[in-house]
Write a protein that binds this DNA or RNA. Structure first.
Ligand code: MN
Ligand code: MN
Ligand code: MN
Ligand code: MN
Lengths: 218, 218
DNA sequence: ACATATTTTTAGATTAATCTAAATTTTTGA
DNA sequence: TCAAAAATTTAGATTAATCTAAAAATATGT
């Protein structure tokens, strides 16, 4: 049985692998987990000992098959609990991450599956992130950002790259939400801001915003 | 912020207080938590330091006001999660304790309250135990056992004293459940077994069974 | 009452996860 | 290429929670 700490290291390694490609080094892990590099070295030696990661001194790490399976299962639990909190307990999407960080570590052979069925097998969490199935299969984002849309083309908002509370609250205040169809009306070369239009409004958003919204072109 | 271990000690002390009156000593705590008495001594010194328990060397412990508040809050969370698991995820009443042992430690200022509302403010958990309100008020069992009923009197089963899986499964197999009205038909002096009748059957049960069923006389 | 049994505490060790400071290895760029 | 910078590992310490063994205090029973 893995400790919560070990599970968090595996999850961190998995998520760094998704965003930073294959260069997963000590510093990146320590930054993600807010620990010191020396602590990371200790832990990765332990995880390597348990055959959950490959590790060569000074060369960084990568997940083994079984390490990846566990990491994805934690992600699965995290996202299903987030759906529960938003859909059933009426939390807002900016409030659920910390609770899900705890709930993802609940140990049970059957709980995730029951939860998933109770939630009617959702495919995405409240932030648009895909929910892995019980075998660890996970549909990856196509990674089309709103910032990359041409003028006069439209897209449906399907996810956020940054799920910080502050960004999510900004979106709430800007009346932009998942499922919105957004059309790009104009682009400003000077600062790469864009003028967009959804059902409710026409407004200008900075590149920092448009580069953190995943869309599906239509 | 208390550790899970500290919370478990407070809960154990609370529950020993409920069943064994006010004599809460090191050995009882160690037995409840499956630790050694020396470990208990260490922890109770720590909890006393934090003013969560009163402790005098060699004299046992008792909860302070704030310690009791915390203990009851853990009990509240435990029982509400059990209701969730049974009522929403369709678990049987003998399957939920271990999961609730973990879920009771999830930290959030708002989660229990939201959960309680989602469950429609249940008053009892799946084993008939009362659920404390948000202020820590808790309706105590009247502690009438089925074994104490007179011949020809009846009672409604409102709880179990023993919530072990084996006892709960025994009740399932015996077609006895919470809410059943049970009439005592006869008593056997030799072994204190009793003949009972509910909607489905007439059957004999041993004193070990009848002394573990709480009833409300009617 | 007091010797013996039981309970509780103390002393010292262990394990997991972390840290700081120092040593080592790798990377960078003049 | 090779010295300086950066990253990584090692050494040694700390904290929480546990344990075993021994010492001290309390309880028990004749
Ligand atoms: Mn999250
Ligand atoms: Mn999410
Ligand atoms: Mn329980
Ligand atoms: Mn219960």
């Amino acid at each position: 049985m893995l400790s919560q700490t070990e599970e968090n290291y595996l999850k961190a390694i998995y998520s760094i692998g998704i965003s930073n490609g294959k260069n997963i080094n000590t510093t990146l892990i320590s930054r993600k987990l807010k620990t010191k590099p020396s602590s990371v070295t200790d832990m990765i030696r332990k995880l390597a000992e348990k055959d959950l990661i490959y590790y060569e001194k000074y060369k960084g790490v990568s997940l083994t098959q079984s390490g990846k399976k566990i990491a994805i299962d934690i992600v699965r639990k995290h996202r299903l609990w987030e759906v529960f909190l938003v859909n059933k307990l009426n939390y807002n999407w900016d409030e659920v991450h910390e609770m899900a960080e705890q709930l993802e570590h609940i140990k049970s052979d059957t709980l995730v599956g029951r939860l998933e069925a109770f939630l009617d097998f959702p495919k995405h969490d409240p932030h648009g992130d895909p929910i892995p199935d019980e075998n660890g299969n996970i549909a990856q984002h196509k990674n089309v950002m709103l910032s990359s849309l041409e003028i006069n083309s439209s897209g449906v908002v399907i996810g956020v790259k940054d799920s910080s509370s502050s960004f999510l609250q900004f979106l709430d205040n800007s009346n932009i939400k998942l499922g919105d169809t957004i059309k790009v009306i104009a682009k400003e070369d000077y600062d790469n801001s864009i003028l967009i239009e959804n059902k409710l409004q026409t407004k200008s958003i900075s590149q920092q915003i448009s580069a953190n919204l995943f869309v599906k072109k239509i």
